[in-house]
Nucleic acid binder design. Sequence first.
DNA 1: GTAAATATAGACAGGTTCGTCTAGAATTGC
DNA 2: GCAATTCTAGACGAACCTGTCTATATTTAC
Lengths: 192, 192
Amino acid sequence: MPTTTTQAPLTSRTKLLNTAAELFYSHGINATGIDTIIAQAGVAKGSMYHHFPSKEALIAAYLHEEADAWLERVRAVDDTSAAPADRVAQLFSALADQVDAGKFHGCPFTNAAIECPDMPDVQAAIVRYRRVLHLHIADLLSGVGGEPLVANVTVIYDGALTSAKLTGVAGGVREIAEFVRRLVSSQAQAQA
Amino acid sequence: MPTTTTQAPLTSRTKLLNTAAELFYSHGINATGIDTIIAQAGVAKGSMYHHFPSKEALIAAYLHEEADAWLERVRAVDDTSAAPADRVAQLFSALADQVDAGKFHGCPFTNAAIECPDMPDVQAAIVRYRRVLHLHIADLLSGVGGEPLVANVTVIYDGALTSAKLTGVAGGVREIAEFVRRLVSSQAQAQA
DNA sequence: GTAAATATAGACAGGTTCGTCTAGAATTGC
DNA sequence: GCAATTCTAGACGAACCTGTCTATATTTAC
């Protein structure tokens, strides 16, 4: 028996979640109907409503998955042995790379907040992600600048995401990445 | 004849635009149907489609008006005799005030970009606003930091808007306002 | 082996949306 | 005064949406 992992047959739930993630993110949440999702996932409508009682539940589940995936992605490129300034700059650079690769369609959570203002479960998923984001940036900074710097870097990260979405180019993000690097670096030096 | 300005009877077009602005901004663009707008404006459907050939045209017109109104508002609170650092900080403070007043529902242009990704006229209105925004921030900075600082402050302003929308509180915006003030101030000093 | 859970295909109801159209009334420009 | 523009009220078509339902089939658990 080869060491390849036996690929478990994708359950309907997983197929739905994967397809929903792709369509919600690339075409928008409201622009993506249930029928489109189940057709592309190759799953019956009954199965969809068996796993998710409503579209809102599916959106919320998508966002929870997205938060987990985001944390995993940013951790994968995080060199924890590097200086805080470089770790933070790396977070921004990774975003710029995504823009250059043409795979960026805005922050999934900002998009959801705007597209689904009247869905409590969706808003809850967004709040939960915001906490994860805050904690991760605090982790990257590892004490430099204290809580105020965490807050400010978070705002700047929001700006990088929004600006990338609206302009479609990575230039501004790369510039701000360097800016943040110098900012954190000087704070660290002042603190030392 | 008294000196009171004779209030011109609001034309249908103006009533539609005002009503659309209020509903689009407070409830969202996709969540606001044509029928709701004409009902609240007290205008017949035929009149609406006489002035605006489609909903997209109405949205684009709304955004153009919004860009003009935004520039007027920020200019009204802009003390051109103040230092660049204070003028820029004022821009952010005004946003924080709007959040505190409960009148803030996100950047109308970011909202439109996310809600209407497939409407060329809407996207054009957004691009036009981005130019206005860039020019205004450049005007506030009046040379301090050059083009790189203009770009970075614009990104931070995007972040303040997004963060205000997602968190719903003004605290982060006030913090970043002070941060930007110090940033611009130190750049101006270094330049002098 | 049997029962429960999960799956399929798709019709269907009830709602919403945008945009068109009719038929006529008020207003405006000149 | 008369014609062109702007307006009203609302029915209507066609398309879309979510969520329910039937009726049957496959898979899983024990």
